[in-house]
């Protein structure tokens, strides 16, 4: 029953910039929290009417359904190049690419690095869940050493397939990027930190400061074969050891 009376105050609601579309994410996955944070940021900055979302290929392919703004579905890995095209066509648009670790840090390696190196005035949200969620939990470039995935059934063997790639650190070597940070969502404090980072990353674009990248450590309970709670603990205790949280570049 939904009743709102004088003594009931609404303290929580869906950000205006999010649609009512039903989520396609699994229970316990962090994509949903992140989507909400982005929606809230777009609301707070009042930019929905000039924002364009670049949806990747991956679990977040449906990102074009989540936001009440224009959107483009890009080829696998090309979101940062597509974002470049949109932004160059109309610099007044606020363009954000939302990309998984396979999309951003494997197949899109060249597009990701070079958009950053050109200092494109765009915002990139890079979701690092250490697997290929969409295709059934295969190894990602970010999979941890010894991590079992469907293509590393005995665990990731660095002698064969190398080590997890710290892509944000690689990009942080470049001179052009304005803001590069790694955040997480495993507890309230981290969620609030991520909110702040995402807001900065969008504000930078609004203020024409240049390229911003927010890497967000995410869970994949389904493909990690862990409960959502165990997944959060895994990020806090293990993943952050390999992918330390915090700002890598801040040249605002």
């Amino acid at each position: 029953m939904q009743v709102e009376t004088a003594d009931m105050v609404k303290v929580f609601s869906r950000p205006q910039s999010l649609t009512a579309a039903k989520s396609t994410y699994c229970p316990g996955c962090h994509h949903g929290i992140l989507t909400r944070i982005i929606g809230k940021t777009i609301d707070e900055l009042g930019i929905a009417e000039r924002t364009v979302c670049i949806a990747p290929v991956g679990c977040s392919v449906f990102a074009y359904n989540w936001y009440r703004c224009d959107a483009i579905q890009a080829a696998h890995g090309r979101a940062s190049a597509v974002a470049t095209g949109v932004k160059r066509a109309d610099p007044n648009l606020i363009v954000f690419a939302y990309q998984g670790d396979g999309d951003f840090a494997s197949i899109g390696t060249a597009e990701s690095i070079h958009a950053a190196n050109r200092g494109e005035n765009i915002t990139v949200i890079f979701v690092n869940n250490q697997v290929y969620g969409m295709t059934g939990g295969e190894m990602a470039p970010t999979s941890l050493v010894h991590q079992k995935t469907t293509t590393t059934p005995a665990g990731r063997d660095p002698a064969q397939v190398g080590y997890p790639i710290r892509f944000s650190e690689m990009i942080a070597q470049l001179d052009a990027p304005t803001y590069i940070t790694r955040q997480a969502l495993f507890d309230t404090r981290r969620i609030l930190d991520t909110e702040e980072a995402i807001k900065k990353a969008f504000e930078n674009q609004v203020n024409e400061k240049g390229y911003s990248l927010v890497e967000v450590l995410s869970t994949c309970p389904t493909n990690w074969r862990m409960s959502p709670i165990a997944s959060n603990k895994h990020v806090a205790d293990v993943v952050t050891e390999v992918f330390p949280l915090g700002d890598l570049v801040d040249r605002r």
């Binding site: 364009v52 090309r78 974002a83 470049t84 095209g85 949109v86 160059r88 066509a89 060249a110």
Partner: peptide, 26 residues
């Protein structure tokens, strides 16, 4: 107007895809 020397032909055509979506001749 915009001239970008892209990092590859894949990137170049992806930029074209973005600019075309944004409604300009590209």
């Amino acid at each position: 107007r915009t001239f970008v020397q892209a990092e590859s032909e894949i990137a170049a055509v992806s930029m074209v895809y973005g600019a075309a979506a944004a409604g300009v001749r590209t």
